[in-house]
Amino acid sequence: MDQEARTFDRSLQGRVALVTGAGSRADGVGNGRATALLLARDGARVLLLDSVAEWAQATQEMIAREGGQAQLQVCDVSRDADCREAVEQAVRTWGRIDILVNNVGIAGPAGTAVDLDLQDWDMALRVNVTSMMLMARHCIPHMAAQRRGAIVNIASVAGLIGGHPSLLYPTSKGAVVNMTRAMAAHHGAQGIRVNCVAPGMVHTPMVYARGMSDAIRETRRKRSFLQTEGSGWDVGHAVRYLASDESGWVTGAVLPVDAGATAGRHSY
């Protein structure tokens, strides 16, 4: 049977995107900054959300130098009031919401169930998981009203495989993976696509700002089939694809961006 060919313009002209964690805590380009820059390059107007104004401002200046449109807003995504105000600000400014990128995440407390700090556990879950629900909670009604929207959640390969030394981080990222699938089922009939990117051992400001020896960096690099190191740009390009019409028939997907680290063991 003949099927009508479907082609898609990668342009995001006229779209409005919210990116959480849009700054970088050190010089360089992290996942949120790369995503914001790439969305703006394709024509989206981007609201840059971060808890530290200076971090988001640097991203805004980079977008402005390239001729893109972006505004920044200080936002603690663990607080419902901040999330609601961020969405309302985007609607007041640009009249719509098309794309939500839930990028914020922290390492959280170290330790196992036996010895981790309970207060830090609660806070980290709120930042890594609850914040994504809160942002979606306020964006989805606007997306549903226009019968179109794209949400991209950032998880981690730590949410797909075991072996992490701490309990909190893989637990929270695993929750993001299945929250993505649940949201996709809940809102697909409204024209809203919900997908997830699971980065591997990328070398971003969030990673190297904590300090990393050359030996550890080399070990991380060798964990993948490609034996190469990823960057925020690798994650950003995956997000841009999932936010665009090019992925119009993709929802509920979990896309590892990890140079093959989760695909299996090395062959020798």
Rank of each mutant, 00 (worst) to 15 (best):
A5S: 12
A5T: 14
T7H: 11
T7V: 14
S11F: 00
A17D: 02
V19E: 00
G23T: 03
S24E: 03
A26N: 07
T35A: 02
A36I: 07
A36K: 07
R45T: 10
R45K: 08
R45N: 06
L49N: 02
D50H: 09
D50K: 05
D50G: 07
A53R: 14
W55G: 02
A56F: 07
E61W: 05
M62G: 11
R65C: 09
E66L: 11
G67K: 09
A70H: 12
Q71R: 12
L72E: 13
V74S: 10
R79Y: 11
A86P: 08
E88Q: 15
Q89C: 15
Q89H: 15
I99A: 01
V101W: 02
V101E: 04
V101Q: 04
N103S: 05
G105I: 04
G105R: 02
A107R: 14
G108T: 07
D117L: 07
Q119V: 14
D120G: 13
W121P: 13
L125R: 02
V127I: 15
N128M: 02
V129K: 05
S131R: 03
M133P: 06
M133T: 08
H138K: 05
P141R: 06
A145T: 14
R147G: 10
A150P: 08
V152W: 07
V152D: 02
I154G: 10
P165D: 03
T171Q: 02
T171L: 04
S172D: 08
A175K: 00
A175W: 01
M183A: 04
M183I: 02
A185S: 12
H186N: 09
R193I: 01
C196E: 03
V197N: 06
A198D: 08
A198K: 01
M201R: 14
P205L: 00
A209S: 15
G211P: 05
S213W: 00
R217E: 08
E218Y: 00
E218N: 11
R220C: 04
R220V: 00
F225K: 06
L226T: 13
Q227H: 09
S231T: 13
G232V: 00
D234E: 08
D234S: 08
V239A: 09
V239D: 02
S244Y: 07
E246D: 03
A259W: 10
A259F: 12
A259M: 14
H266L: 13
S267V: 15
